[in-house]
Amino acid sequence: MATGKVGRRFSYAFLILSIVPILIGYTWLVIATLSTRTQGLLPINAEGGIGGLTLSNWKFVFEGDIWNAMLNSLLIAVAMVIGVGIASTSGGYALSRFKFPGRKAFLTGTLVLHAFKAEMLLIAIFFVLRWLGAIPVIGDYIGFNSVGGVALVMVALELPLGIWLMKGFFDNLSWDMERAALIDGAGRFRVWWQIMLPQVRPGIAALALFTFIAGWNAYLVPFTFTIGAKVANMPVFLNQLISDTAPVNWNLVAAVGMFQMIPLIIFFIFTQELLLNIYAGGSKGT
């Protein structure tokens, strides 16, 4: 149909137009990391002519600090994926399937809590982390100025979203399958682990990706509750880089930013097939 064709062209044009700024941004990023200076999208050498390509911006790869920051970022992100994953899949299942006192209050409560920005809670969380830090033995790992403490706070902030997301996925599963498993001899835990969890794999993948990105890019919480380079994660490290050097070497900052993106891209490549299955999968065979 003629109108359909025109409409399609319009939507393509619109989509292409809207990604142009983003594409320009990434193009600049790549060029900037490989040059001493840029003017617009062009690399510029000392004389002001086009040229001056260099790998010197990437020298930081051979320094220890960035690897330490990377490890901290990875620890926070992985701890979040595991913590949020376990709590959300089990909590979401319970909220979807069981009737218990306070269920409704809990559901609305988590939703309301999610509406509060993390910034509002910073001071209160600081006190909580101080108290946690005072616990003997484990206090050093989950208190103030520790990677564990940051991960703990981030998990807590991410849980409302995770629980609601997983509850939604469990809500869509048929009760019959669960009843069949109960009659086949499975207990509640086995039903959850062997029958229900495999059905919500796309949901788990989506949640893992969201949480990983949130953990990897976390800035406010690590910046507030850590002091010094030892416990800094990537975004905090990047910020220190900007404030430590004057004048700011933007090309170096671009290279570090680029470096920070690489693990995310790898993670996305591994989960994208599962993510695309979210709507294709669902209730096959039921």
């Binding site: 019959d176 498993a181 065979g285 039921t286």
Partner: peptide
């Protein structure tokens, strides 16, 4: 038990 929806494990 046999269900209308079959309730098989996909």
């Amino acid at each position: 038990m046999v269900f209308q929806s079959y309730a098989l494990y996909p």
